[in-house]
Design a protein around this nucleic acid. Structure first.
Lengths: 143, 143
DNA sequence: AATGCAATTGCAAATCGTTTGCAACTGGAA
DNA sequence: TTCCAGTTGCAAACGATTTGCAATTGCATT
């Protein structure tokens, strides 16, 4: 359990400020996201939501994710070979190491790599709008 | 037109060695891949193939791509927001800068970044199986 | 507290990229 | 040439996600 991002985001406030109506399904979904320590996909969020309010639909989950993504409250990650997974957009930027055995996601950050990326883009005559760095690996067998 | 990877791969030989039958549709698709300077998606390969042999089907394109990927002859890239795009697996490893305006793909390579990735994975107790580094940007406006 | 209406919902159907079942059709070894 | 497993085209199935629509619901307004 990493303590790196334990501050839960106040989504309701964030959305209100963005002029978005707070409905019952949204409140449920936002609650789930707030204390999700992992990187759940839409179906998983849907499962957790239904456990709280059986009437919530998968469409609404998808629509809410799109909404939150739109206002920059969450990030969507399309890791290899699976559905999109989401995470609250709190804390500083980081990249991901995906455990190809378990699907677990480990966050990491490297200023040096970020710098190098900038340099490379510059040298190619480009401005980076965003980037994607994902390491896919397996836990090193201890020896 | 970059000259970086102008050596066309001999797919037929590669496939024969892998014990794969060389059929007419495959020959056409392989030809297209051999001299594709870009990173076409399945539909684009299909279009180019049909222009040569109208009887080729999209299924066959997909099946052939999967086959080639399986023997390591091509790489599949799932860039953001679009279908998979393919490129011959020749030359050394490289990453990609995607022009978000045009979809153009520019290849680049950074030993330093590769090293840093290794370091990071190590420090997290992982072995990297593969990785994905994509820069999404737009051409810098000259000033 | 009651009203009004645009925003939001659930549902089912549609979409997109890709894969698959199947019967017909080949490579290419014998 | 024969033969048959490998390969094909087609259409249907697929998984993830989006959408049209009619019914519902926040919530600003009375």
């Amino acid at each position: 359990m990493t303590e790196s991002q334990s501050q839960k985001p106040d989504y309701e406030r964030e959305l209100r400020n963005a002029g978005v109506r707070i409905t019952r399904p949204r409140r449920v979904i936002l609650g789930i996201l707030s204390d999700a320590g992992d990187h759940p996909d839409a179906m998983e969020i849907f499962r957790r939501a239904v456990a709280i309010d059986a009437s919530i639909s998968l469409s609404t989950v998808y629509r809410t994710m799109k909404l939150l993504e739109g206002v920059g409250a969450i990030h969507r990650h399309a890791f290899e070979g699976g559905p999109s997974r989401f995470e609250p957009a709190i804390g500083e930027h980081h990249d991901h190491l995906i455990d190809i055995e378990t699907g677990d996601v480990i966050e990491f950050q490297s200023d040096r790599i970020e710098e190098l990326q900038q340099e490379i883009a510059r040298s190619l005559g480009y401005d980076i709008v965003h980037h994607r760095l994902e390491l896919y690996g397996r836990k090193r067998r201890k020896r």
